[in-house]
Nucleic acid binder design. Structure first.
Length: 724
DNA sequence: AGCACGCCGACT
DNA sequence: GTCGGCGTGCTC
């Protein structure tokens, strides 16, 4: 019998980057890493996770408090998920307790049982007083095996009040018994369509890898049948008695997606996404952990879900930026999914029509195996792309003449037209022709956007809003909206295409999941002929009758300070282009730009995403940017203008980086003042991971030791997606 | 992050 | 004379 450890090291949900040492509980209980414990902390109590058992502490034992109780008999997370949490905390330089908290449903953090239970009732002490007929009947029913409330209700309808009375008098006792965890009910599996040649060979490669770690990129244009390949692969894993984890971007987790998995696979499915209540999330999580759910479909944080029999991981639309958590523990669920697959010894499939440049480089270096789905299922042809030079054509608002002509042609042929403009509102600024005044946000270094229908000015950075002024506050000249937003394009369309039904889809017109479903229905039934919208249109849904897509302004993404802007632009263009065309009618895509000769845009339009990606990767290599170097970002934020720069300058001096790690900055953020907070940043860059990691460990310690942390908030992000 | 303790303005 | 502003210090 091993002697009990002297010290328990516990992760707690605090922003402190250390573990807390406790004495083991008085009564000896089994102890193992991953068990939840209830501990005294400060003047209150917390639920933490036991990370290690140790023989000594850096503090004198007399100063340690004692663990109040051990909540579990087995770890909350499966071994691979537990290891993933430890890895993520270390890699992203984030407090372990907070990462663990992100991995567990809120109710488990509050201390409820790991496994679902149900209250059952049975007869207790014999009655010493006379009972009514209902009471006697109920007691008789509960004389045998304990029954659930539902079972009691089925035998004796309306016995609820009687039950409550007898419970109170001690004549009935209650007990908690394990309950089957709730998951979506299974349906009979339906057969799928026949596979094409490329799908078949991709599926063969994937199924051959079941049972071992193997990372794949499944590169397939929209409509090439990636989902069908996922479904067959998952079916194979299920047949071998394993579970599957499917990660999707938040916006893609629609009832249609879930429906497709549920009807095809015929097994219970658990969903994990931000729209669940605490109770629902707990039920889904438990269903995954106990194995009742065979497939887990979830967003970002589902990468940490417990799946004891994990057999395969799928990351759909792997290029999507919503896999990167932007607050708190800033992890990339896509990257962690690959690490988890390695820890679990299972294959992982990253699927996309527009893979991230990082992923393509992983393929180029032989770390991932690329599987290609080159053709559209059902023989549909890919859309043709062309640019429209905005400098040489007459404009109708945001629409160049060739775009208008193309729209007339497609509408005349019975097709639908999709216009993509990544800018909400009527116009991005309000300008005074008299004195050149531009309506500014009072709280940000930004211009206010005109929302004409609401007759308001809005800041798209901080949410501030105010009434729409008629005249310039400085010189009383009438103000002019400048630039194009979706609301203004809608107005142009009403003028240029009178009588044609237009549907605008953006955050201002579509509210919540139901709103999107309603808009989607109007597109499907043809009651909308022209669709106009922002990124919301580029993700998730297919619009099979759309034959023409017009990208109204490609230039926003070409001249940004952020080196990833062109990659995002190309992905958005190709994703939105993927909405167009089907078997009997190839789609047409027109990209409006004032500089169609821009090398990356020209490559994309003439030769497609693959050629764009090669050119963009060559540029990144030349400039020493990711994926050819590794970055971390230190951000500072304060109420005063000088504090962030001062804090980062001091941090830089103390850190004193050693080659090959370079420290760039500090520099004010692109939007220096946002919501009345001033922001600056420091960029840490290194061609190698290891020295970057060492530098970050040092910097993270310095940040924690920085005095006056209430005045300047410092945060650290590893592998930032947005830089500049 | 909470949640304490600890010194200077507008109220009963 | 108090109630309370948020500055800074601690949590095994």
């Amino acid at each position: 019998v091993p002697s009990p450890p002297k010290v328990l090291r516990v992760a707690l949900d605090t922003p402190l980057r250390r573990l807390f040492d406790y004495l083991p509980p008085e009564a000896p209980v089994p102890l193992a890493p991953g068990l939840r414990v209830r501990v005294p902390f400060g003047r209150g109590e917390r639920v933490g996770v036991l990370i290690e058992c140790a023989e000594r502490s850096e503090l004198p034992l007399a100063r340690l408090k004692r663990v109040k109780c051990v909540l579990d008999t087995e770890p909350a997370l499966s071994a691979d998920a537990h290891a993933l949490v430890l890895f993520a905390a270390d890699y992203y330089q984030h407090p372990l307790g907070e990462v663990y908290a992100a991995a567990l449903p809120a109710r488990l953090r509050a201390g409820v049982a790991l496994e679902a239970s149900e209250t059952h009732y049975r007869a207790g002490a014999p009655a010493r007083t006379r009972l009514g007929p209902r009471q006697a009947a109920l007691l008789a029913a509960l004389a045998g095996a304990p029954l659930s409330r539902e079972a009691i209700e089925a035998r004796a309808p309306g016995s609820g009040p009687t039950l409550a009375t007898l419970l109170k008098r001690g004549l009935i006792e209650s007990l908690e018994v394990p309950a089957a965890a709730r998951a979506l009910p299974a349906r009979p599996a339906a057969p799928g369509p026949a596979l094409g040649h490329a799908q078949t060979s991709a599926l063969e490669a994937l199924t051959a890898a079941l049972g071992r770690f193997a990372p794949f990129l499944l590169a397939g244009i929209t409509g090439s049948g990636k989902t069908e390949v996922y479904l067959r692969l998952i079916a194979c894993a299920l047949a071998a008695g394993r579970q599957a984890l499917v990660l999707v971007p938040e916006i893609a987790l629609t009832p249609q997606t879930v429906e497709r998995f549920a009807t095809r696979l015929g097994v219970p499915i658990a969903l994990l996404h931000s729209g669940l209540s605490d109770g629902e999330r707990l039920a889904m999580w438990r269903a995954a952990r106990c194995g009742a759910a065979r497939v887990v479909i979830g967003t970002r944080s589902a990468v940490f879900a417990s799946l004891p029999e994990l057999g395969v991981i799928v990351v759909d639309e792997e290029h999507d930026s919503s896999y990167k958590q932007q607050e708190g523990a800033r992890y990339s669920a896509r990257d962690l999914a690959v690490l988890r697959a390695r820890a679990a010894g299972v294959p992982v499939v990253l699927g996309s029509a527009t893979p991230a440049l990082e992923t393509l480089q992983n393929v180029a270096e032989g770390r991932y195996l690329r599987l290609e789905l080159p053709e559209r299922a059902g023989g549909a042809r890919s859309p043709t792309l062309a640019t429209i030079d905005l400098r040489v054509h007459a404009m109708n608002g945001a629409l160049a003449t060739p775009a208008v002509l193309a729209m007339e042609r497609h509408l005349g042929a019975g097709g639908q037209v999709l216009l993509y403009l990544n800018r909400r509102g009527f116009a991005p600024s309000l300008y005074c022709p008299g004195c050149a005044w531009i309506a500014p946000c009072p709280a940000c270094d930004a211009r206010l956007t005109v929302h004409l229908r609401e007759r308001r000015l809005r800041c798209h950075h901080c949410g501030a809003s105010g009434p729409l002024p008629f005249a310039c506050p400085r010189c009383a000249t009438e103000l002019k909206p400048v630039g194009q937003g979706t609301e203004r394009v809608e107005e142009t369309l009403a003028r240029v295409f009178p009588g044609v039904a237009v549907l605008r889809i953006d955050r201002d017109t579509v509210r919540g999941r139901d709103g999107f479903a309603a808009a989607f229905a109007k597109v499907r039934d043809g009651s909308a002929r022209i669709l106009l919208g922002t990124q919301m249109l580029a993700k998730g849904h297919d619009f099979p009758n759309v034959s023409l897509v017009v990208v109204l302004d490609a230039d926003q993404g070409l001249f940004s300070t952020d080196f990833r802007a062109s990659e995002r632009l190309a992905q958005n263009i190709i994703q939105v282009a993927g909405r167009a065309g089907r078997a009997d009618r190839p789609g047409e895509v027109l990209v409006q730009s004032a500089c169609p000769a821009h090398p990356l845009l020209a490559k994309l339009v003439a030769q497609g995403y693959g050629a764009f990606a090669s050119a963009a990767l060559a540029e990144r290599r030349h400039a020493g940017l990711p994926p050819f170097s590794h970055l971390a970002l230190i951000a500072a934020e304060a109420k005063t203008a000088s504090a962030p720069m001062a804090a980062l300058t001091s941090l830089r001096e103390q850190a004193g980086a050693v080659a090959p790690v370079r420290i760039l900055g500090p520099a004010p953020a692109v939007l220096e003042r946002k919501a009345d907070r001033y922001r600056a940043q420091l960029l840490i860059e290194s061609p190698e991971r290891r020295p970057l990691k060492l530098a970050l460990e040092r910097i993270a310690q310095l940040i924690e030791a920085t005095p006056g942390r209430s005045r300047v908030r410092l945060s650290l992000e590893v592998d930032p997606l947005e830089v500049g």
